[in-house]
Write a protein that binds this DNA or RNA. Structure first.
Ligand code: FES
Ligand code: FES
Lengths: 130, 130
DNA sequence: ACATAATAATACTATTTTGGTATTATTCAA
DNA sequence: TTGAATAATACCAAAATAGTATTATTATGT
């Protein structure tokens, strides 16, 4: 069971790597080499970050990606949500369909509670702090 | 992300169903029909429970499975461990190998902390209480 | 003894999720 | 106008989970 998926993990590293090159744009090949992540995969992640997230891209020669938000304003949860969806410990399914006794189920209750704790704990964690 | 996997979920229901038939042994087909879980899958789960867990089986005509421990002595974690392994939120892997800066990593730290909270919370939860 | 009703053991298959590639189009600047 | 970059999207692979099938063994009632 993984709280942080590989894509999220890579996304964090990529953001940090870009932040280390202030004032100029970072090309995907450069990031790929630096981090040892396959270039095609880096691009895929960068695209998500560019579309939904805290960086912009410029095409063409000399192009690349630039942060639009400082790392200490980027929340870990937001990156997680981008790549893994909302933090959740799973709905109780019985067979393939949603389980009936959700309302009264104490296991569900525990799961929701734990979900809350996790959310609460990571709520304020920024990328800068990692 | 699922705290409880389907097998674990089924295992819990199966244990509860068996407990409702005190004094006699429950056959896998019976449990299968009652719970609507495919019989072959029920058997697979029962086998694990019989080998590592809180019930015994008797073969032959009139055979089946009997609880050896009352539900209020069976811990949820133990069932989880049987079917999913120890409660963990994942080791930080970089690429395919274990990440280097484990010692100083604050994300890892948060993850371990949350793991602890989860373990602490479910530590005393018995099957009877669900 | 023997047929039958049950589990035991284990190997196999299918589905889903995650991780990763490839391909083609577009854009910008020298 | 060419080449170095990203955009978009479709595709493929590996791993984890979910489920099936097959064969062997064991116990019991007759
Ligand atoms: S048994 Fe399904 S919500 Fe708990
Ligand atoms: S970056 Fe790997 S343990 Fe944190």
């Amino acid at each position: 069971m993984k709280l942080i998926t590989r894509e999220t993990d890579y996304a964090i590293r990529i953001l940090k790597a870009i932040a280390e090159k202030p004032g100029r744009s970072a090309a995907s090949i450069e990031l790929s080499k630096e981090l040892g992540i396959p270039v095609a995969f880096v691009r895929k992640i960068l695209q998500v970050l560019a579309r939904k997230g805290p960086l912009t891209s410029t095409k063409g020669k000399g192009g690349g990606f630039v942060l639009t938000t400082p790392l200490d304003k980027i929340l870990l949860v937001d990156i997680m949500i981008m790549f893994q969806g909302p933090v959740s410990l799973g709905d109780c399914l019985f067979g393939k369909k949603l389980c009936g006794n959700r309302a009264s189920c104490s296991l569900r209750c525990i799961i929701l509670e734990l979900e809350g704790t996790i959310r609460e704990r990571i709520k304020n964690v920024t990328i800068a702090s990692l």
